[in-house]
Design a protein around this nucleic acid. Structure first.
Lengths: 209, 209
DNA sequence: CGTACATTGCACAGTGTTGTGCAATTACAC
DNA sequence: GTGTAATTGCACAACACTGTGCAATGTACG
């Protein structure tokens, strides 16, 4: 009986991880994908999935937990120790872009009445931070939008998803898409296009990458 | 046997219309809403819905037909006889905004693999027009975005939906939301915020309303 | 009133999905 | 190899939804 610490890679754990990865992809394609569909896509029989997750709800819940955590930390990482709202937004978008697929799944599942009524609640603190940041920018006159901050946050979010779809359809490369997303979000908020572009290249160049 | 021309309002026709209206709303909330759910929301029994539409597919198909037609004509109306791409975009957004809910349903249904594979195809000419218009703006330097026109079209579309949700959540009034949508779309495309705002107020003031 | 038509209530078969049980089989470690 | 754990292949029961049939009820209209 080997002592199992975090990071072990037994056969079961590999399967579990693969199931989660495939489930993310499949649920992104169709939020109502069946357990059988997910299982087969993961190269596994439906019964095996139930060996790892007691119910469909549990599987999705695990996905949601991971996504919320990843989103919150990505969002926070982007704006820690940054005073300028525009720069904070730029860094935040670049950071969130890395996990945008999980973010998108969260929103897709939250829209669905059937699946988890708690997603919106668990998402709201993150969104509140986003709104606060945008409000700062509006107050300081860095952003010139006529929209109230909460509405601007919706726009912010949907721009990310629009560019994800663009990447999905081969209109954009993944790397440049992150920067494009940041620039477009800033531009939509009312930052002059040239300023936004310069800011993002500067910020993304200074990233610890 | 009365001669029935378009515009009659028998009891059956009223029910049919109400079912369609309610179905639009319910399917917008949940694209997989059951026939029973839609029927009850329309104050009718499930069997009655099948009296008007032979199948769920047929009901949705009717909705889709109306939506595609409405979208195409709204989109066209916005840019007829207008030379400036920015003004055309502004008018187009204002026009499409009137039927944005039907537009949104189309996109929501198209994402669903199960429901109608033909929606994307029937939507593509409209989207092609949108892309062409945006491309003009980019070529003439009216729009300053670094995004390719097709990607910008995705952003354009999602901004509309974001502001619909904002209206839905009471963050914006319906009337001002239309103008805000136009301004935000233009701003996201790289038109300076002040210019966009002026253009839209001018255009919307000149609208035959 | 009586006729025509729309709606209702119920019952039904077919289908897809979820979650569970259990025995057989397979992979991995020692 | 032997044993332990995971995976597989069925076989269930329960449930929700679709689409149809038919008799009963309701509603408009002359």
């Amino acid at each position: 009986m080997a002592v199992m610490t975090t990071g072990n890679t037994s056969r079961a754990d590999l399967n579990r991880r693969r199931i989660l990865d495939v489930a993310l992809a499949e649920l992104l394609r169709d939020p109502d994908a069946s357990m059988d569909h997910i299982a087969r896509a993961a190269g596994v029989v439906r019964r095996t999935v139930y060996g790892h997750f007691p119910s469909r709800e549990a599987l999705i819940s695990t996905l949601v937990d991971d996504a919320v955590e990843a989103l919150a930390s990505a969002h926070a990482a982007g704006r820690e120790g940054v005073a300028d709202p525009a720069e904070a937004v730029a860094r935040s978008v670049l950071s969130v872009w890395e996990i945008a697929d999980r973010y998108r799944l969260l929103v897709a599942l939250a829209q669905r009445t059937v699946t988890m009524q708690g997603i919106r609640e668990r998402l709201s603190p993150v969104r509140a931070n986003s709104v606060r940041l945008l409000q700062q920018g509006l107050d300081q006159g860095v952003f010139a939008s006529a929209l109230p901050a909460p509405a601007l946050a919706y726009v912010h979010e949907q721009i990310l998803f629009a560019l994800m779809e663009a990447v999905n359809d081969g209109l954009l490369s993944t790397q440049e898409a992150g920067r494009s997303a940041a620039v477009t979000v800033l531009t939509a908020a009312g930052v002059p296009a040239a300023t936004a572009s310069d800011l993002v290249t500067e910020v993304s160049g200074a990233l610890p990458r």
